[in-house]
Design a protein around this nucleic acid. Structure first.
Lengths: 375, 375
DNA sequence: AACCGCTTTGAAAAGGTTTTCAGGTGTGCT
DNA sequence: AGCACACCTGAAAACCTTTTCAAAGCGGTT
């Protein structure tokens, strides 16, 4: 019992397969032939009847939860296999209160980031025997509806990535009985474990890189106002400039979003003026790609006239022209860490130790979109 | 009852909210204040006790399933709200055999396509009151494990996108008791509804476009052997060439994958030879981006020396240099259609009418990566 | 006054599993 | 022979809901 609780896994992954059935057509090159599955939805009662034992005995054999005589054990296993029995998850959940699924709440953000994170979460979850129940959404209200639904006994825990979540909204999640882990989302003063990547440090390092190249006229397309990651990146930029003794020009701090379109649209007016920055930090890689396009159209060559940096380090940035200098977020680490923290909390039974704050470092990838300023 | 079955929705989305509680702090600009939720996990029994009625009555009021006297109805609603009662989904599932979730099996493909499809599926599912239980995976074996788990009473239906699924593997899914919809996956002779996009037609149209520009030396980076979409696209290419009286050169038909890296790696040797094609169809947009890079490095200019086309029509292709000519797959339509077909099947109770085969047309987006051949 | 039919209500069963509790068998000891 | 004990096993309770069935109350009719 204790072992089960600690492992955080559903107690059994038993599933009967049919041996020696007439349908079993396994051949050497057909690894699935023997796993053809029956769907008459046999219940534990059917198995018990067929094996000539009580349902308790069946349960004990299948879950390996108590000693059963050798002969009965064998009969039970045979009956279960013959019937293709698989325990009913709803019945199990009803009793054990474990759903063996994790909820995931994601904003619908930039394509690659989203898919990589989800894949990472899914891999980690499956390794631990959990399913992922997901909800993507733009609007906060939806997120709340989904969170509420999920937390109503549908998941054992929740992973939330919602950088724009406001504190008092986050606060409301605190009354949930299931543990919650935040990714890149502000949980100041709240009891949630968090996994953040180092937005501040990454932005600071990118800015420092530009300064080291000799740039002094550095602009930034910052992310949405109120989004935690955007604010932190802005702060990294400001700090690096301040330490270099440079006062940022307010008209070179413009607000954008995490999309190609936004980067393009917001960058255009920047290059239309007489004076423009010689280097530009962008909200993320997609935004940077948009800005690069705007620069080209304005007759600026990257990097000789303008240096551009992104954020996230998506695989595709290596294939941009020129390859983009950016801060790589190790998305797989972020996902695995989040799942791991969540499973720990679930296993602990929601113990009240202090919330864990993980910060995943980011690497600056120096590529060809940055160079010394012109002249 | 009939209405419920037909709608395909869980019968009730009731959820009590706490009115007039001390915690209720709603203010005009705080739309969530009144939705603070309690998690003492009140059961229907608690509600009945507090309201001084039987649990049957509570159930009737909350599901609006029979007439209840006005006074008792009011008492029940008050009690439910005060306790923050929400029905236990597992108990409901156990009885109704409806999980109100849909399974989604996706290969972990190219970033943007994946995320857009998932978002589309999720939006459609949520609109109908369903959750999405997802599984991403590379390996077929995993897909099967996940499918099996999901179908064991964990989902009401399954959406599978697995272009590389082999027929006999697909065959095995046919014994499942829950309906299944295939996206872009071969279901020849199988009872699954399918949503395919017009791989053949798109590829044919792209090739025709290149022919019309005057190209005769057209190569292709095809997708994985055995993948349905790749085979169909190859066929479109071959047919268009054949109709133009051109015999394809076998050394200009190379096998790649749906990634930047593959496009880059496979295209390089193509450009290293003395003779190379003047136009290149690519497995998808990512692959095309890789090929463009390889072309640049080989000293070829796109489109003046080499025309390149992709497939999928991802948003980011508009921001490539040059913007990529490609066939746009309306991913949101694909996703919505798949969910809609699946929900229909679920509502029908798995009726045995002939499988529906939907083919979603694709648009050719003519952009700047294609031009007449040199000379 | 007896009876009928209608509305409202509660008791109870069912759904499939896990787990507790008690009973039964057999062994080893005095 | 009698007793303690370990070991297996089955009956039954519990999880929470929905739904069926029957009872009760009540107004109206013959």
């Amino acid at each position: 019992m204790l072992r089960q609780i600690c492992s955080g896994k559903p107690r059994s992954t038993f599933r009967a397969v049919q041996h020696g059935s007439s349908r079993a057509t396994a051949t050497p090159d057909d690894p699935y032939g023997h796993e053809c599955w029956d769907d008459m939805s046999a219940t534990i009662r059917d198995v018990a009847h067929r094996a000539g034992v009580s349902i308790s005995t069946v349960s004990r054999v299948l879950n390996d939860t108590a000693r059963v005589s050798h002969t009965k054990r064998k009969r039970v296993l045979e009956a279960a296999a013959a019937l293709g029995y698989a325990p009913n998850p709803a019945a199990r959940t009803l009793l054990s209160k474990q759903t063996s699924s994790l909820g995931v709440l994601l904003p619908f953000v930039s394509g690659e980031f989203f898919s990589e994170l989800l894949h990472s979460l899914d891999t980690a979850a499956q390794d631990a025997g959990y399913f992922l129940l997901i909800s993507t959404s733009h609007r906060l209200h939806n997120e709340f509806r989904a969170a509420r639904m999920m937390l109503e006994k549908r998941v054992d825990g929740l992973i939330v990535m919602a950088p724009e979540l406001r504190p008092r909204e986050a606060q409301m999640l605190a009354s949930a009985s299931e543990p919650i882990v935040f990714i890149n989302t502000d949980a100041e003063g709240l009891p949630f474990d968090t996994v953040n990547f180092d937005n501040y440090g990454g932005s600071y390092a990118l800015t420092s890189h530009l300064l080291a190249l000799g740039h002094r006229d550095i602009g930034i397309i910052r992310g949405p106002v109120g989004a935690r990651d955007a604010e932190q990146r802005l702060k990294g930029y400001r700090t690096a400039l301040a330490e270099a003794g440079i006062a940022p020009r307010s008209d070179w701090i413009v607000t954008g979003e995490y999309t190609l379109e936004a980067g393009y649209a917001v960058a255009q007016p920047l290059f239309a003026k007489d004076e423009h920055p010689t280097a530009l930090l962008c909200a993320n890689d997609y935004c940077a790609a948009g800005a690069v396009r705007a620069a080209h159209e304005a007759g600026l060559s990257v990097p000789s006239d303008l240096s551009v940096v992104g954020f996230d380090g998506l695989p595709s940035t290596l294939y941009m022209q020129p390859p983009l200098t950016t801060a790589r977020v190790p998305i797989d680490v972020v996902g695995r860490t989040a799942v791991s923290l969540l499973l720990d909390r679930i296993a602990e039974g929601h113990a009240d130790h202090d919330p864990v704050r993980r910060v995943v470092p980011v690497d600056v990838l120096m590529r060809a979109s940055t160079a010394p300023p012109p002249r």
